[in-house]
Structure formats: structure tokens, C-alpha cells
Amino acid sequence: MLLKINHETRYIYDAPVQYGLQQVRLRPKERPGQEVKSWNIEIDGGKVELSFVDQHCNHVDLISIDRGRTEIAIKCTGEVDNSDGSGIMGSHSGFAPLWYFKQATDLTKPGAETRKLVKALGDDFENDIAKLHALSAAVVEKVAYRTGQTDAETDAETALRVGEGVCQDHSHIFCAAARMLGFPARYVSGYLMMSDRVDQDATHAWAEAYIEGLGWVGFDVSNGYSPDERYVRIATGLDYREASPISGLRFGSGSEDMIVTLQVQQ
């Protein structure tokens, strides 16, 4: 499936920025089943200072904001050709070893709520795939999909207590619980072509767990199935902070607004 993507993120500041840097992870990963036909990033209000590949093999562009600007826009356009691998990403690669993906982070640190979720899951499963699909279903049953109840800094335990959240929260909870069960797990950020709309207001997130004999397998907890040819993987990490499409810092007072426009279509 050939997917065409148009994605713009615009930051508007209520005071001129004196100094700012952003780490941009918005270049899709080349892998078996995902071929990047073309990809272009344009910056309005800043420039790329350097580019590097991080420990997860994410391509990162370090962008500086032009001094005195009150807006910066990051525009991505391109085409990605995908095939359906039933959610199976395959063998592990990259600079980080598998044991690295068993560690907790501030956003995926398990607590009482995660332990209750894992305990309620039980042990009566035919195989690891069945167990992890059951975990995915248990997460979305416990935490209903609803926007506005959590934010980028909400951790897995808090989302479980609130009982509502979005794909980021579902992915964090899945990673925390899967690691408790002994599986390496990681967070994935990317794009999803939706069947009911072209225009979207955010990128998507899901999770992957490593299963012996299969390798990395994806689980889109929010939608209840494994990623197929409609999904474009951009970045991976232990949690949102390591795989965030854009993260950064700036000096100066004042607030900012962010406007996202995104189209993913065949």
C-alpha cells in the first residue's frame, strides 16, 4: 500500500524566542515491509543544525529556532510503500540490547494499578501472542479512549487510576505491564491511515513486545489489533519521551500554542 503523508506542526509563541532547540524525529524508518519512496522536511522559522541516529536507530534532526521569531513550522511530505506483516517486525537490531527494553521509566514505572492489571490477566494462554493480545484488550477495557483527560506527562499508573486516556497512555500501560510479564517492550510513534477520515490532528502511537521465535510484534492497544500496511513507523523508544516526534526547549517567558495538520491517504 502506497501512502501519501502531509504533516505540519506549527508553534506560535506569545513572545519572541531568544533561543530554542527542537529534536525532530519525523523521518520514517526503512525496514522490511516499509520502503520510504520520498520524504522531505521543510523548516520555516528555523534551521537544521545537525542530524544523527540515536540508540534506537531513530533519525533525529536538531533544529534551532531563529532568534526573535514568534512562529516556527515543521512541514513533512512524502510517500511510504508498506506491506502487511501481521504486526511482526522481526528480529532485533540497533544499538540498544534487548535487556534495555525491560527497564521501567518515569512514564512506564509499574505500581499497584499495573500489578492488579497483570494479576487479573491470569496464566491460561495458549502462547505468548495470545497473552499479549489479552493484555492489550485488558488495557483498553480498563482505560477508555477519551481525549482531554491526560497529557504528555501522564504516566501509566496515573492513566490507570483515571480510567481514561489516549493512544499514548494505552501504549505506556502496555509497555509497563508487558515488562512485568518478562517481555522486552517499546513505544512506537508514527502515522495511521484512518478509514473514516483523511484530516487528522495528531500522530499515532502503539507498542511492540519482543517474543522469542517471532521477534518484535506490534500491538495497537487503542484500536484492538496489530499494525498492518496502514501504519508508518517513525520512531521507537522506551516511552513517549524517547520516541516523541518533536521535543525541545526554549529560553524566555511566555506561553506557546501548537497547531497540527495531518493527512494520511492512499
Results as ranks from 00 to 15, higher is better:
Met1Tyr: 09
Lys4Asp: 12
Thr9Leu: 04
Arg10Gly: 00
Ile12Cys: 06
Tyr13Trp: 11
Ala15Cys: 09
Pro16Cys: 11
Lys29Phe: 09
Arg31Phe: 11
Gly33Tyr: 03
Glu35Trp: 09
Val36Asp: 06
Val36Ser: 08
Ile43Met: 03
Asp44Asn: 11
Gly45Val: 05
Gly46Thr: 02
Gly46Asp: 01
Gly46Cys: 06
Ser51Gly: 15
Phe52Ser: 14
Val53Pro: 04
Val53Met: 13
His56Val: 01
His59Met: 12
Asp61Ala: 11
Leu62Gln: 11
Ile63Val: 15
Ile65Ser: 00
Ile65Gly: 00
Glu71Val: 08
Ile72Gly: 00
Ile72Cys: 00
Lys75Glu: 10
Cys76Ala: 15
Cys76Gln: 05
Thr77Glu: 14
Gly78Ala: 08
Asn82His: 04
Ser83Gln: 13
Ser83Cys: 09
Gly85Asn: 11
Gly85Leu: 14
Gly90Thr: 07
Ser91Trp: 06
Pro97Val: 04
Phe101Asn: 00
Phe101Gln: 01
Lys102Pro: 01
Gln103Lys: 15
Gln103His: 15
Gln103Gly: 14
Thr105Gly: 12
Asp106Met: 13
Thr108Lys: 02
Lys109Cys: 12
Thr114Ala: 15
Thr114Glu: 09
Val118Trp: 03
Val118Leu: 06
Gly122Asp: 06
Gly122Trp: 02
Gly122Phe: 01
Phe125Glu: 07
Phe125Val: 05
Asn127Tyr: 03
Asn127Ser: 10
Ile129Cys: 02
Ile129Gln: 06
Leu132Asp: 08
Leu132Phe: 11
His133Asn: 14
Val140Ile: 15
Glu141Thr: 15
Ala144Phe: 06
Tyr145Phe: 15
Gly148Phe: 02
Thr150Gln: 06
Glu153Ala: 14
Glu153Ile: 09
Glu157Gly: 03
Glu157Asn: 07
Ala159Ser: 13
Leu160Cys: 03
Arg161Cys: 10
Val166Gly: 02
Val166Lys: 04
Cys167Asn: 05
His170Asp: 04
His172Val: 10
Ile173Arg: 01
Arg179Pro: 01
Tyr187Phe: 14
Tyr187Asn: 02
Tyr191Asn: 02
Met193Ser: 00
Met193Ala: 09
Met194Trp: 10
Met194Thr: 11
Asp196Pro: 09
Asp199Gly: 01
Ala202Cys: 13
Ala202Arg: 13
Glu208Leu: 08
Gly213Pro: 03
Gly213His: 05
Leu214Phe: 13
Trp216Glu: 03
Trp216Phe: 08
Gly218Leu: 02
Asp220Met: 08
Asp220Ser: 07
Asn223Gln: 10
Gly224Arg: 12
Asp228Arg: 08
Glu229Gln: 13
Glu229Ala: 13
Glu229Lys: 14
Ala235Cys: 07
Thr236Asn: 05
Ser247Lys: 14
Gly248Asp: 11
Ser253Thr: 12
Gly254Glu: 10
Glu256Asn: 10
Glu256Trp: 08
Met258Ile: 15
Val260His: 03
Leu262Gly: 03
Val264Ser: 00
